[in-house]
Nucleic acid binder design. Structure first.
Length: 188
DNA sequence: CATGGGATTGACT
DNA sequence: GTCAATCCCATGC
């Protein structure tokens, strides 16, 4: 993946990340669900401006933005758009590829479709933690790479974002159409 | 310094 | 369907 891939409008990147591969220390999966966040809308953490928390979001594209959600889960994002713009793509679900037994151990569940079918689940399965905030997704310990040949990028479905109270109507969620590894079905 | 709100998940009715 | 766990950090006094 090139740096320029991320230095684009966050909605384009969110759609194009479907089918790409997230890897971390032997575990990997195909991205099947994403959501876009941008500092122009209130659901984005960067809406409040530049603070210690949002510094990564306003930083260079292609880095990981990892934060703690509900005091329990670490959520993984890919920072987008030029430096100075606060925008990122939340990685919401993966189709597991490699290291499935390690993922099972970390997650405490056996079913493959339950390993990475949610933003908090996939970080637990891959061992992504807050210490990865700000690391480079091109060459860090968490890497996103081009789609593999075996995985045919399906059609992409669009839906409203999940679990937010602000700007809930924006159609900024992207899913691999028909995937069995989503966090939720796409609304009809 | 005290308070309150989550980009969630799993357990339970 | 409901609900609590748990902690970072933004905000306000």
């Amino acid at each position: 993946m090139r740096r320029s891939f991320y230095e684009r409008p966050v909605l384009e990147v969110a759609r194009d990340l479907i089918g790409c591969v997230v890897s971390r220390n032997g575990c990997s999966g195909v991205i099947v669900e994403t959501e876009a966040y941008h500092d122009s809308e209130p659901a984005c953490h960067a809406f409040v401006g530049l603070t210690p928390r949002t510094a990564t979001l306003f930083g260079p594209p292609g880095r990981a933005y990892v934060y703690r959600s509900y005091g329990i889960h670490a959520l993984l994002n890919a920072v987008c758009e030029p430096e100075g713009v606060g925008a990122a793509v939340l990685i919401r679900a993966l189709e597991p590829l490699d290291g499935i037994d390690v993922m099972r151990e970390r997650r405490g569940v056996a079913a493959v479709h339950a390993l990475c079918s949610g933003p908090g689940k996939l970080t637990q399965a891959l061992g992504v933690e807050l210490e990865h905030n700000g690391t480079d997704l091109l060459r860090g310990s968490v890497v996103i790479s081009e789609p593999i040949a075996a995985w045919r990028p399906a059609e992409v479905s669009v839906d409203r974002r999940i679990g937010i109270t602000k700007a809930p109507h924006l159609p900024w969620r992207f899913c691999a159409t028909g995937s069995r590894f989503l966090s939720r079905r796409v609304a009809a």
